[in-house]
Design a protein around this nucleic acid. Structure first.
Lengths: 240, 240, 240, 240
DNA sequence: TATGAATGAGAGTTCATTCAT
DNA sequence: CATGAATGAACTCTCATTCAT
């Protein structure tokens, strides 16, 4: 589309860029950010150390580029997923699956890298909200927000919901659970059922609440349980 | 109990130990693990670097000791909290408050340190389940598990609940949300209301389903009060 | 042969390499391996400490490189010496002089370095025979072996000789004696006469043994051997 | 024999001293002088580090004490050996066996320690001859010297022998050969035959010479010259 | 006499980054 | 644009030795 010449050279540059980013991603994921030297990265990418710094002026910049790419991909696949189905619950399940899969593909190290990034650059972006990562994360979580808001508009979800708490539970729950999931082998079915176990309680509490029938079942059963305990105490007392 | 002399020296040792741990905790929290040199820690603790390594053979060991202490405290306060109230929901609220407060007191960096620890020692404890941190975390989350299980036994919570998913949502949600909370100043009320916003959806989905529970709030609270009175009678009877 | 540019830079690299090795050799010799810090070496070589580790990844590697160079030189001069004269006894004298002179030029510390090296790397090369130093030493002592073997073939030396014992006496005697020699000032004549004092007893015991009967058996067998060679040459000439 | 009280306490002190020396000897031998920290030694000896420095003010002093003890033992057993047999050759064989066995019992590291010692204390005893080790070594090698001298007096050994060269060959040969011997397992027979292989050539060259070899030097040199001429002709022919 | 906590200098090594080529 | 040699500050950790108890 562009001039072939420019196109060609741009392609080569891009090739190198992605070589470096791939190598760095892999190493960061495997050994951690601090344990990965720029020398190792350059070697793994098949370029000289000088070149690495030619492309990314700083190790931190490289880290940010990786995270950026990761989020960009995450956002894109999330958007595609949301557009592919209609129901709010189905959309949430898709978002959850997408999130989990992306993290697992990267050995969950992306999460750690984000932590590192925030550690490292806390000096530059004293206000978390100004940090590039925050902006990316904001763009990403807005997708979830929009799905929920649309659910509200359509009446599937009660309107007095605290959206931010729901968001925290959704993403926090997934990420926290991932640690457990990680130990075992990647398993598509397990992921699916885990995702449901996370989403369902949230989905349930999101909905407008019907059924006046057995209204206070909880309290009823509490009463029943208490009665049982009283009875058993009475029995013991009688035997004593 | 011992000779005063010995006692004294033991105290001095312990003093030094805690000086070092305090200094290290502070610095790790402020600047991160990797950005804090042992030199800085020693200086901040008012001891020589040699002494630091005399007490903790390795920077990693020091990190582990800090995390250990943190968890120990967390576990203790959680247990106390659980024992101080009776209702399951109240207990969950207390656990959540305790968790959040502990994290915020440490500038939420404890979470990062745990990540660092797992990164660093992944080589030693190839199986995450064998790592000391996992064991501590297990002990801690068992408190939550027990609260929920007891709720089930007493009939307050439906028995077909997926406990592990609930745990993930609970702790994950809190930790994820903490980031947002952190930016603002510490505020006891805000924490309380945030905690409710996290716990309520979970509590709701834990209970037997489709209850109109909140629809007739008045009756509900009367029942609630009665339940509580009965329960406390039971407690007293059992202890007698 | 190459571009002068490349050639030049290669030269500069080699210059640096040898600067470092020279400085290290000197310091190791003067103060011993353990007492010489990499810092000192770098300073003496006029490079930064980083550069030192750029060239030799480890202090041990540097040590090995020095020993390697030392042996290489030793081997070369020994070979030249052997080729420059014909008689077995003369060759042994030359080898001895060469050995002694090389050691004395390095203040005899090379021997100590070899010991250090073997100490240090005993863990890496559990089998002594696999250590690089052993291989170098083997190459070197083979020169002595070959001289003796040729002496046997030519009949100057009795064939029932225990070569390994002879080798031990030769090199061991020289090195042991060197300590004594070291204290005094370098003295070409003294070395020459000392060398004879060491070699002569060995030479004597190498030759076919007394029995006054055929008094000059050695010379006789030399004559016989020479005749045989002459005869075989004549044969070849006749066939040509 | 002494006062029981003093005796007792002296015994305890001596016990401790020897505990420390034994532990240090073992560790020095196994890991080398520099790789063995005083902490390790103290732990292995079952005393505190303070105590170690109480007995031996310095790590170097400890080293010297060990070497001193080693030599003392070596000297004693050598003297006993010499007195137990009469023949000069037998005495030399015994001395050699004794030397070899002592070194092998200590994993040959004693030799290295001596080197270390000389390195370390070269600053204190700028003149080798004044160093304590030199004195010990002198006392020890005098035993060899005396055996040889007595052999001369009794007429077993020719009187124009260069004693110092003989000594260098004897001890140097043994120590050099030990490296080879070390690799294999300790084997009493092997040691015996090795010792003979070392001593015999020396013994041979020590004896009064019945060969006419040197007696008729004139004839000899004529033969020699003829040989050389023949040989050079052969060389030229072969190269042609 | 025996202890072991405390020291601080110094060790080897790593590292992100620069810059002349 | 690409290189990789060069840097030197900073790192964690070790060590022989001291000294108050």
């Amino acid at each position: 589309m562009d001039k072939p010449d420019k196109n060609k050279s741009r392609t080569r540059l891009e090739q190198r860029e992605s070589d470096i980013m791939d190598a760095a991603s892999k190493l960061f994921a495997e050994e951690g950010f601090h344990a990965t030297s720029t020398r190792k990265i350059a070697a793994a990418a098949g370029v000289s150390e000088g070149t690495l710094f030619h492309y990314y002026g700083t190790k931190n910049v490289l880290l940010l580029a990786i995270l950026d790419g990761f989020y960009e991909q995450l956002i894109e696949s999330a958007r595609e997923g949301v557009e592919s189905v209609m129901g709010t619950r189905e959309r949430l399940l898709l978002l959850a699956k997408n999130h989990l899969r992306a993290l697992m593909d990267n050995q969950a190290l992306m999460m750690r890298l984000i932590q590192v990034y925030l550690s490292v650059d806390i000096y530059y972006y004293q206000d978390y909200k100004k940090s590039p990562i925050h902006k990316l994360n904001y763009r990403y979580t807005r997708i979830f927000d929009n799905v929920v808001r649309e659910g509200m508009e359509r009446g599937y979800i009660r309107e007095d919901l605290e959206l931010s708490a729901m968001r925290d539970l959704f993403f926090g729950g997934l990420e926290y659970g991932m640690r457990t999931l990680m130990g075992r082998k990647y398993n598509r079915e397990r992921v699916a059922s885990y995702v449901e176990a996370i989403v369902d309680p949230l989905w349930q509490s999101m909905q407008t609440q019907h059924s006046t029938a057995d209204s206070n079942a909880a309290d009823n059963s509490r009463l029943e349980a208490t009665c049982k305990r009283l009875e058993s105490i009475v029995e013991r007392l009688e035997q004593a």
